[in-house]
């Protein structure tokens, strides 16, 4: 039995999780990372992806998030997600809408930096689409 720590997943609309967990897998901007108790303090942006939460008791939960931040301290971890939905309730149409919007953004922007940013985002979204397809 691993040590547990406090994990909170918040979206602007509501507080989704606030409980003791054993480990959390976060899709960090620079790669996935697994957070366990007594993790060194890290602050990272997250990319669109799936957050896997393993609570101290009960079964694993998975959430789809679209960007946000994770604030990790030894005592706990707070994830501020732009939008978070349990994988089971996730609406494919919503993702397609976002991909479509990102694609339009990428095509319409004039300046190169913004375009590369938009393309990167689009890329992440399509990866995400692949990741949750089988689920």
């Amino acid at each position: 039995m691993a040590e547990s720590f406090k994990f909170e997943l918040v979206s602007p609309e509501r507080l989704l999780i606030s409980e003791e967990v054993e480990q959390v897998i976060i899709p960090g901007a620079e790669g996935e990372m697994t957070v366990m108790a007594s993790h060194a303090p890290v602050m990272t942006t997250i990319k669109p992806g799936v957050v896997t939460v393993k609570p101290a008791s009960g079964s694993e939960q998975r959430y789809v998030v679209f960007g946000g931040f994770a604030d990790v301290v030894p005592q706990g971890c707070t994830l501020l997600a732009e939008s978070a939905v349990p994988v089971g309730e996730f609406d494919r149409a919503e993702l397609e809408k976002r991909i479509e919007a990102a694609r339009r953004d990428a095509e319409s922007t004039e300046n190169d930096e913004a375009r590369s940013r938009a393309e990167l985002y689009l890329n992440k979204l399509t990866t995400l689409e692949g990741a949750i397809l089988p689920a």
């Binding site: 960090g28 901007a29 620079e30 060194a40 303090p41 890290v42 602050m43 990272t44 942006t45 931040f69 301290v73 030894p74």
Partner: peptide, 13 residues
């Protein structure tokens, strides 16, 4: 005021 690791950099975040 714990010493944080920033990923990517603090400015980018």
């Amino acid at each position: 005021n714990a010493i944080y690791d920033y990923e990517p950099s603090a400015e980018e975040i």
